[in-house]
Design a protein around this nucleic acid. Structure first.
Lengths: 205, 205, 205, 205
DNA sequence: GATGAATGAGTGTTCATTCAT
DNA sequence: AATGAATGAACACTCATTCAT
């Protein structure tokens, strides 16, 4: 009965990842003990260890899931709209945030809270650093592409360095995550996005 | 070793803080063991513990130093220039980054690398969270003040929400730190700042 | 090792308590390191710590066991004998010592050697002091009750303060423990008890 | 200037011993750190270490002082009174307690509190054990001598084992110390002694 | 002679991981 | 497949002692 087993395996992995995400978002990677995860998942040590071979493996899986999402959405938003035009950078930024509100695994706040821990980890782990570089670069390039298109349309000052513009847009996303993590519910994400759009799309609506 | 001067005490504290900063920047707060710090400082456990009463005390001292800098510079850059005018927001941003390059303790990269760990910690520590909120708010308010002055001068679109503008400027700083932490030396901070200025001061030079 | 029974848990606790008792009796509470106990018990740190949450917990468990025994036997020996009469004080003293020879956990000598450490600890620990006062008072009151009954029967001089008599009987027990701890096997406990009975029951047999 | 130095040395030793006694009585030998003693004595580590070569040395000095006192007084009380007779055992017991109230170094309560720690230590240290055996034996023999004299005078039942009687008298002293250490000021030492005398001198006044 | 900063072996405790059942 | 008792290396921290000044 391989089919049933596969589903079972996938379901258990999800169950464990979900528990781990909740713990990591609450306490960070290091302050989360495996015991915390066993308890959150309602499983025994042996059970968890038969799906993930170490705590590090679990951390990596959570990070990969998070990174994967970014890379994927960045790709989507540089594609042409139905009417054939490319999004304005600010427009793409707003869509990106919007998309992030409906994530498969966990909540936006959980992801925001995990973000600094993720950045912290990638400093020490070359593999993770490569993934982080790839994810951020993809995002930056996406925005750079949109910026160049905007400049061609005359919607963005030609003097602006499109590549650096991509970095700034990325920073606005990173800053949003950090400010959510600092201010929690006291952060008005909608107002933030509105002003970010105004800044990125300078006078275009 | 009798009659030890205050200078000696201050020097030792600096030596230890400097070692701790190096370790924390390299490995994060949690992955840094006290042993690492003893080794980096070239001191024995007892010596370190006679200057700082716990690892937590050391962490807090490093964080306070970092936070203190931000708050302090934010205050400086909202003051009027010699010629009586306030800085343009982008101008202040560039000055802020410039200022950060000449820190007393440690290097810019060390501070950048500690930043995500600091954000991660403040999520769990109410006292730290309060300090983080205070620091970020001060920075945001500084930029908001400059933005309002720019709007009064007609240098910034009146439709922009000055307070949110302050948040965005803050995000550009946070994003810079994160990107330094991800890209290391492959990050061209000058180019980043130049484009940030262009974006924040929209067409003003 | 699934489905571990309550008996297993109880057996492990006994194993650990027994090891701890042996160490504490040999070296005292402070000179006994947890390492000593791990070794004596033949268990790893983790194993011991999953049954007792700290060294202090272990110390308290040992003390409670010791104290509990005293209180309990003191109660027993003030109860009437099958023939309806109360014991003579010296008779109760001999029974008490006899009872102490068949303790569940550890040996008489171990208990004797732990006694001074216990008295030393209760000086600093209010909770322990309260327990020590309660235990000693119970013992004293028991002997005082028997003394009063003996005085009513005319077996004990009426001029003697029954309450102080209870203290003296208690002292004879404490002194026995101390002399065992000083003289070890060179102490003839039987001869001691015989003379104690003669003194306490003054001419009665 | 050897004379001055000698006095100085003796004074310093007394100062340190007095501080150590205060600390040991308060916290026990193990919970007292050398720092505590430095502070109590108002001296630097180096100063204390130039008079006592280790903490253990200090502990031994305190114990020797205490033991010495016992041995010495035991000797005194077996000597004949001015009128040529020997003391009754109870009489000697009361005198012994009285004598203990005027000790050179420290207070009675300090000695009582140190007593259990002393007993605890001698279990591990053969040299200390020998001293404890010697001290207690001297005391026991003193009381045994007085008991034999009392028996000869017909003041004490001839059936009583004089040597064991000596042990019991010793126990009454030990019990008094322990009860002081447990009950503190709530212990009425005078009443205790009065009843002890009645018991030891059975009907003689 | 006296100081007190410094040493470093040792402490109690935690927790990622394993494996007999 | 699943359990959870057990492991043991590693951790943060203490404190008796030394020695350069």
């Amino acid at each position: 009965m391989p089919k049933v087993t596969d589903e079972h395996v996938a379901a258990r992995r999800r169950q464990i990842l979900s528990a781990a995400l909740a713990c990591f978002a609450r306490d960070g990677f290091h302050r989360t003990s495996m015991q915390d995860i066993f308890q959150e998942a309602g499983l025994s040590p042996g059970a968890v260890y038969s799906y993930f071979k170490s705590k590090d493996d679990l951390v990596r899986a959570i990070i990969a899931e998070t990174m994967g999402f970014l890379t994927q959405t960045a790709t989507v938003f540089t594609e042409a709209l139905p009417d054939g035009r490319l999004r304005r950078p600010g427009e793409a930024f707003a869509d990106l945030i919007e998309q992030n509100r409906n994530v498969e695994l966990g909540t936006v706040e959980q992801r925001a809270r995990i973000f600094p821990h993720l950045i912290g980890e990638q400093q020490r782990d070359p593999e993770l650093n490569a993934a982080a570089r790839a994810g951020l670069s993809r995002l930056r390039e996406g925005f750079a592409t949109l910026a160049r298109a905007a400049q061609e349309r005359g919607d963005l000052a030609a003097t602006i360095d499109a590549d650096q513009f991509g970095r700034l847009a990325t920073s606005l996303l990173q800053g949003a995550l950090i400010q959510i993590s600092v201010y929690g519910d006291d952060m008005d994400l909608d107002a933030y996005v509105r002003t970010a759009v105004a800044l990125l799309d300078q006078g275009q609506q």
